[in-house]
Design a protein around this nucleic acid. Sequence first.
DNA 1: AATATACGTGTATTTTTTACACTAAGTGTT
DNA 2: AACACTTAGTGTAAAAAATACACGTATATT
Lengths: 245, 245
Amino acid sequence: MQGVDWLINLIFIILTYLPHLNSIFSVDCVIFAFDEGELKILLIERNQDPYKDWFALPGNMVNNDESIDAAAERVLYELTGLKDIYMEQFHTFGELNRHPKGRIITVAYFAMIRLNSAKDVRPVIPYAKNASWVSIKELPELGFDHKMIFEKGFERVKSKISYQPLAFELLPEKFTLTQLQNLYELILNKKLDKRNFRKKILAYDILKELDEKQKGVSYRAAKLYKFDRRKYSKYFQNELSFSKD
Amino acid sequence: MQGVDWLINLIFIILTYLPHLNSIFSVDCVIFAFDEGELKILLIERNQDPYKDWFALPGNMVNNDESIDAAAERVLYELTGLKDIYMEQFHTFGELNRHPKGRIITVAYFAMIRLNSAKDVRPVIPYAKNASWVSIKELPELGFDHKMIFEKGFERVKSKISYQPLAFELLPEKFTLTQLQNLYELILNKKLDKRNFRKKILAYDILKELDEKQKGVSYRAAKLYKFDRRKYSKYFQNELSFSKD
DNA sequence: AATATACGTGTATTTTTTACACTAAGTGTT
DNA sequence: AACACTTAGTGTAAAAAATACACGTATATT
């Protein structure tokens, strides 16, 4: 039994580090979209314990060879098929009891996207049974602390949208001012004055008026606009600069 | 050698999980204070590899039995002796190469504090050689990605201070309006008009005028004010509510 | 008493925000 | 063709907020 001494030593060394074994981290994504007049987020139905068969935010472990940002991108793709979504990190959740399997902290991201081709979402790995868009007004119970994560993410969106024109991200490329206003009202949860809204949004000078009109409506068709990213970034630079004076 | 089969098996199992061994996380704190007319942050001089003898933000590993928030509090105390500081999480940094010892992500916190008794800072564990307040204009080179962490934290402070009255946190309990204005100018990095500044800050109605004056100055002494936390929280509730209309 | 220094104050102008209601255009129906 | 219906599109006046701007006053020091 002499020859196994080194083995036993090795095990001791490993055991020393073992407490770290359950110290790992995950990412979770809160993806917003605007569909059928409602704000929706992307949920998966889990196919794995813990919380097998529960609804949850798309999220999974970060690999050891990728940055957190990259992990968020990968995980979102694997669980929903969505690619090339710009997500922004908004908070890291690390309560001790948040994950039944032990000490797992999660870095949460949010994004706001346009729902055209993204409407059909489907997991590409069996970790999730399926993925779907769910109205934030009718959210089912969610696994883990995902309800809280969603809420914090939604708070962030609300506060961000009031000083940055983010809402365009959610609309189809061409939209009417009324659609844009409806979206703002939905997110901010208050009525806005039509004339003042138009005055203000046009004053930002980040919209391009198109020579096109709405189609398929049984009333006077509204003009279509599109978001002018070039003007937007100019406006944005000014916003951020503290240099003047 | 039959009897060690189970040992070898165990080792295999452990090795399977081994990649997670170097997946752990830390917290880092960016603590701002106002001293001698300058904005300073709290730095430690490290006494441990990696970056032994370098300056760095106060930061260390999160234990397995504590939440991240609690870890931030503990680590700050251990490295600087500071207690009961309200810190706010602002970002999690997880680039692959950010830590030379492998995959360690860090959750960053910031706080703004009043420098009276907090002026003397001293590590209570030998992980740091010492702790000190350093002007943000003369920051030394910092270990890890701490320069970037500081910058992101400072950005956050700047943007927050322009819509929330945070500056009081940095001043002594009793302060003059000129001191307050100087601080705002320092953080926002621009000159403000004296009369307009006073008008505005008093309009918020969150200051309490004292029956006391500045002492020890060789010119007309200014009135002292103090921050009225009661009024402040009332004001704040209004700020945050989206309920009206 | 004179000097030096920061304190404390008001008003006019511009800009931004708010409140508010009707006509116009297009669709569908009879 | 006339009509009814529905949403589009538009302007102005009032209030509030932000800005620009300069000098007499109080206190400490000499």
